Computed example of a mutant assay.
Amino acid sequence: MSVKSKTVTTVLGPVSADELGVVSIHEALLSVVPGAEYAFDIAIDRAEIFETLAEKLKDFRAHGGGTIVDSTGMFHGRDVRMYEALSRTTGVHIVASTGQGPEEMLGGYFLTPQTNPPTPWPAEKFADLFTKEITEGMVVPRVERRGLAGLVATAATRTGMTATDESLLRGAARTALATGVAVSVRYGADAVHDLDIVLDEKLPADRVVVGGLDRKDAVAAGAPAKVAARGACIALDHVGTEDAEHITDAERAALVADLVQAGLGERILLSSGATGVAKGHPADDLRYSHVLTAFVPLLKAQGLGGDDVRRMLVANPRDLLAMR
């Protein structure tokens, strides 16, 4: 079956993988720190949030964008019904995600099940939780299941993978094997180690994208090339962020050029990790169009051509997201 005949699950149902257009692979629409919805000093006005997100999505579309992947997973503000309305209003495809992590962001129910002594959830329980969101619909708390997730997104603890993190990653890999979706991994301390945990579940490497590979520690360790050499996709997903933790956009562009020169262009994905609306934490307040308006010119200045750019923004994410 060709990629063109495959489908991707969006919040409005399956669409042809070939209709996604330019894809931003690691973004956040509404991001709410768990518990912030109950804080006395935080207002969550859904109408206001909708208008803010609609404007940003329309801007993305106006600059040539086609698909936003909301890779926040479960319990961080995901609003399935709002995302459906946003997609209809703006014409932007939205791929929502299931998944959880890192451990510190899990609710107690997932950390201390009723066992004595308490033990981490096993991978099969996480796999069952994530799989149902892909095959039966994403949970709308206390109401229903609605819409299907099109990606399983996980994250490991920054200081190093915990036992619960390992269960999360293995559960995500088993979900991908059972359903045909891809896995997004935000690595913790060691990108190659975390990828190897997922691959140990016999998931093909090209069904995995490892994010955060424009962090300074990842670049210093040569992780982007090492992950790509294993056959996984690499996400430089903080384009526009220039701080103590990440390389600059100029350095990102040079890194992309080096990877393309090394024959790894088919593994590269780009995104800004922008947050449309944040509650309970500071927003990464970049436009979803930043890659298109500010970063693509830097890539072309590095000597990359239109085909190289289209491969990273259209073909590579299309191939990753297509159900198999």
Score class of each variant (00 low, 15 high):
residue 90 T to W: 08
residue 156 A to P: 07
residue 225 A to I: 03
residue 300 K to A: 08
residue 256 V to T: 15
residue 153 A to Q: 08
residue 288 Y to P: 09
residue 172 A to L: 08
residue 101 G to T: 03
residue 203 L to G: 06
residue 282 P to V: 06
residue 10 T to K: 07
residue 36 A to L: 00
residue 315 A to E: 15
residue 3 V to I: 14
residue 160 G to T: 09
residue 105 M to L: 14
residue 162 T to H: 05
residue 323 M to C: 00
residue 89 T to Y: 06
residue 64 G to D: 14
residue 223 A to K: 09
residue 103 E to F: 04
residue 87 S to K: 07
residue 291 V to P: 06
residue 37 E to Y: 00
residue 81 R to D: 14
residue 3 V to K: 00
residue 75 F to A: 14
residue 298 L to C: 05
residue 129 L to E: 01
residue 258 D to F: 04
residue 153 A to V: 06
residue 201 E to Y: 03
residue 318 R to P: 00
residue 198 V to A: 14
residue 115 T to G: 02
residue 188 G to Q: 13
residue 149 A to Q: 02
residue 234 I to E: 07
residue 282 P to Q: 05
residue 162 T to Y: 04
residue 315 A to T: 15
residue 171 G to E: 05
residue 105 M to H: 09
residue 6 K to N: 00
residue 61 R to E: 11
residue 68 I to Q: 10
residue 295 F to C: 12
residue 99 G to D: 04
residue 135 T to N: 03
residue 246 H to W: 09
residue 160 G to R: 10
residue 263 G to A: 06
residue 14 P to K: 05
residue 105 M to F: 13
residue 221 A to I: 01
residue 223 A to V: 08
residue 132 K to T: 10
residue 232 A to T: 10
residue 3 V to G: 00
residue 186 R to E: 09
residue 258 D to H: 12
residue 11 V to M: 10
residue 148 L to K: 15
residue 282 P to R: 05
residue 12 L to S: 11
residue 185 V to R: 03
residue 104 E to P: 00
residue 22 V to D: 12
residue 10 T to P: 04
residue 54 A to P: 01
residue 135 T to I: 05
residue 279 K to Y: 13
residue 203 L to D: 03
residue 180 G to T: 01
residue 230 R to N: 03
residue 299 L to W: 04
residue 132 K to W: 00
residue 117 P to T: 10
residue 292 L to D: 08
residue 298 L to S: 12
residue 25 I to A: 09
residue 275 T to L: 07
residue 101 G to M: 04
residue 4 K to G: 01
residue 306 G to W: 04
residue 100 Q to I: 07
residue 40 F to S: 01
residue 115 T to L: 14
residue 136 E to R: 14
residue 313 L to Q: 07
residue 154 T to Y: 02
residue 103 E to N: 02
residue 308 D to H: 14
residue 48 E to S: 06
residue 155 A to K: 12
residue 116 N to S: 14
residue 120 P to A: 04
residue 71 S to C: 13
residue 228 A to L: 06
residue 84 E to P: 01
residue 303 G to P: 05
residue 46 R to K: 15
residue 95 V to A: 06
residue 254 A to T: 14
residue 129 L to P: 00
residue 21 G to S: 10
residue 23 V to H: 11
residue 227 V to H: 11
residue 44 I to E: 02
residue 252 R to V: 09
residue 271 S to P: 11
residue 42 I to K: 11
residue 276 G to C: 13
residue 231 G to V: 06
residue 181 V to N: 02
residue 28 A to F: 08
residue 73 G to H: 05
residue 114 Q to E: 15
residue 295 F to H: 11
residue 309 V to H: 03
residue 20 L to S: 11
residue 13 G to I: 08
residue 54 A to N: 10
residue 295 F to P: 10
residue 238 H to Q: 13
residue 49 I to G: 02
residue 82 M to N: 13
residue 114 Q to Y: 11
residue 137 G to S: 06
residue 123 A to C: 01
residue 260 V to P: 04
residue 102 P to N: 04
residue 45 D to V: 02
residue 296 V to G: 13
residue 132 K to S: 12
residue 52 T to L: 14
residue 301 A to Y: 02
